[in-house]
Design a binder for these strands. Structure first.
Length: 402
DNA sequence: TCTGGGGTCCTAGGACCC
DNA sequence: TCTGGGGTCCTAGGACCC
């Protein structure tokens, strides 16, 4: 049976949601109507464009580039900080509205959903449902979406990306040739900045040219990825809409430091703060981790990572930190200027999968300490401990400079 | 490049075992 | 030792997504 899939993509999500929030709070200008961006903090060396208004796009400002670049392209561009809690709130409102149409919704990201409408169409068409959703989101929530209408996820996602904003596009099998094949290969989902030049070198420039390339040649050059890109270029995708909430496979946090750090004691201090944050998140999921991974980025933007297995799965801050500290010391070469440090845990299992006997012998001091720290986090807000440690580092740096 | 932070999945090579 | 072949597990690094 043919599946009926919608892909919903919020137009300029972070910027639109910020605009609505500001209007609500009495701000007079709708920042969607002026050249505006949502950006990181340049003083913290995270000054990149996270979202742009349509007007900012007219100046050729792109997501991901530096705010510095954006300002060169448009000197009067207005810059607003990013506020995740607001995005989460609007994302949830959208999800609640969409639940009126199907309960098979995959939240692909904070601003994108896939809907499997196969069982929920009754006497109407997929297109009519798309129109109704678009209208209701605009009227009830105050922002616009693009909707892709198709028979699989890949084609729905490609369709929602066509022209923006506030548009509905179909991409059925018989439309692939006209609507998708003329596009440059860079537009195909999962073809990024490394693969596109390789394809161009093979004289493959459009999605159509990719679709007509021998699949086996692509497999010999790109392995599994080659098979996937061939299938995608031909509109083939059998993946399911994953509407059941999935447990995370790994949890990590990382931070770009306000200045390069060359002092391992300082790195350890930050790592402890990050360990606390990651372990806290792990405990909130009621999960345990078996693998710890430390990531470093040097000032010249080279990434390094070391990982190691723990003897027993844990969510204990100190156990995770001790392992992380070992990995850091293995990896860090004296004098290396570090720009970013991160920690992630992998091989997660649910806590109740572990036999109780494993806990019985355990010293519960650490668990008590963790739960005390969790309370601090709950009271003063998520990440408060990490912020304290980072402030410590900033003060340290100031002291050094004077 | 004045270049974030959170993820998932894949691959190549080494260790180890039979 | 002039050392096979297949399988599994592990690690480091990379590609891609939003």
């Amino acid at each position: 049976m043919e599946r009926q899939i919608l892909h919903i993509d919020v137009n300029n999500a972070f910027l639109s949601w910020t605009a609505i929030d500001m209007l609500k709070k009495g701000y007079e200008i709708d920042i969607r109507t002026i050249p505006a961006i949502i950006g990181g903090d340049e003083t913290k060396r995270s000054g990149i464009v996270l979202a742009k208004s349509t007007k900012a796009k007219e100046f050729d400002i792109c997501t991901g580039e530096t705010i510095y670049q954006a300002r060169i392209k448009c000197p009067n561009v207005k810059i607003f900080p990013s506020k995740y809690s607001i995005y989460k709130e609007y994302s949830n409102k959208l999800y609640e509205l969409l639940l009126n149409y199907t309960d098979e919704i995959e939240r692909y990201s904070i601003d994108e959903c896939f809907l499997d409408m196969t069982k929920f169409l009754l006497n109407t068409t997929l297109m009519e449902k798309a129109k109704e959703i678009s209208k209701r989101v605009k009227e009830e929530l105050g922002f616009t979406v693009n909707i892709g209408v198709a028979h699989n996820k890949l084609l729905a996602k490609m369709a929602s990306d066509f022209t923006k904003p506030d548009r509905i596009h179909t991409l059925f099998e018989n439309e692939i040739k006209d609507k998708m094949w003329p596009l440059p290969v860079s537009e195909l989902f999962m073809l990024g900045r490394k693969t596109v030049p390789k394809l161009n070198n093979m004289k493959i420039r459009t999605i159509g040219e990719l679709a007509r390339t021998d699949k086996n040649i692509l497999i010999s050059k790109f392995g599994k990825h080659g098979a996937q890109m061939w299938e995608y270029s031909n509109g083939i995708d059998n993946s399911e809409v994953k509407y059941k909430k999935e447990k995370p496979k790994g949890i990590g946090n990382s931070t770009t430091l306000p200045v390069d750090v060359r002092n391992i004691e300082k790195l350890e201090e930050i790592l402890l703060a990050i360990s606390e944050q990651v372990a806290y998140r792990l405990r909130k999921y009621n999960m345990l981790a078996n693998v710890v991974n430390v990531q470093l980025r040097s000032s010249d933007f080279k990434d390094f990572s070391h990982q190691g297995k723990l003897e027993n799965s844990t969510s204990n801050t100190k156990e995770i930190y001790n392992k992380a500290k070992k990995l850091l010391n293995e990896m860090y070469k004296i004098g290396m200027p570090i720009r970013l440090i991160g920690l992630r845990v992998d091989n997660l299992i649910e806590k109740n999968e572990v036999q109780l006997s494993l806990f019985a012998s355990k010293d519960d001091k650490q668990e008590k300490l963790d739960s005390a720290l969790d309370k601090i986090n709950q009271k003063y807000g998520y990440g408060s401990i990490k912020r304290a440690a980072k402030m410590n580092v900033e003060n340290f740096i100031k002291l050094k400079e004077t």
